[in-house]
């Protein structure tokens, strides 16, 4: 916790973030959202800004394994938490995460602007429900909007992803 001028709860700008398993030292404005920090300070532009208002899901990242809208999280509020973005999903050797692999095999998504968010939402959801029905999966990833409306194919891929994740 930053403690400047001795006042309880005061916040320092220079903080360390745990992003994709790396400790990143970064100067963060008080009014900065996690999406902005990831995109403009850490170069992680896979996290997309579709609406910046928590109503499209393109910016979904995992904070301590929980899917959150990075556009609507103050970066300072995730100090000490484990942040995972789309860039941190594949193994260092490039092996895709089972969810990513399922998307590639199923040729899921169209313009794919929503894809990183959908993938992260699915990864997070499968941690809480590794063997969902198609309906449960749809509910689980319903906080993500696809304007190409490739929902059917996305669900196809993500059901395969669930199988792959369990097998993995």
């Amino acid at each position: 916790m930053g403690q400047n001028d001795g006042m309880a709860g005061a916040v320092e700008r220079l903080i360390t973030l745990d992003v994709n398993g790396q400790q990143r030292r970064v100067d963060v404005l008080k009014n900065e959202t996690l999406a902005m920090t990831l995109r403009y300070k850490l170069g992680l532009t896979g996290t997309k800004l579709g609406c910046d208002r928590a109503e499209c899901g393109a910016c979904t990242v995992l904070v301590d394994d929980v899917p959150r809208y990075a556009c609507s999280v103050l970066t300072h509020s995730v100090r000490g938490k484990k942040i995972q973005s789309i860039e941190g999903l594949a193994a260092p050797d490039g092996t895709l995460h089972p969810v990513q692999q399922a998307v590639v095999e199923g040729q899921g998504f169209q313009c794919a602007f929503c894809m990183p968010g959908f993938v992260m939402a699915t990864v997070g959801f499968l941690k809480t429900n590794p063997a969902p029905t198609r309906a449960q999966l749809a509910h689980g990833i319903s906080g993500n909007l696809c304007r190409c409306a490739d929902y059917n194919k996305i669900l196809d891929c993500m059901m395969v992803a669930a199988d792959k994740s369990r097998g993995a």
Binding site: A8, K30, N31, H76, S77
Partner: peptide, 22 residues
């Protein structure tokens, strides 16, 4: 729209601290 103005941020760790700040 869509450019948040600057503010001072407090992140108290207890209710007491929060009430003090408020």
């Amino acid at each position: 729209r869509d450019a948040m103005s600057a503010f001072e941020l407090f992140q108290p760790a207890s209710v007491g601290d929060a009430l003090g700040i408020l």
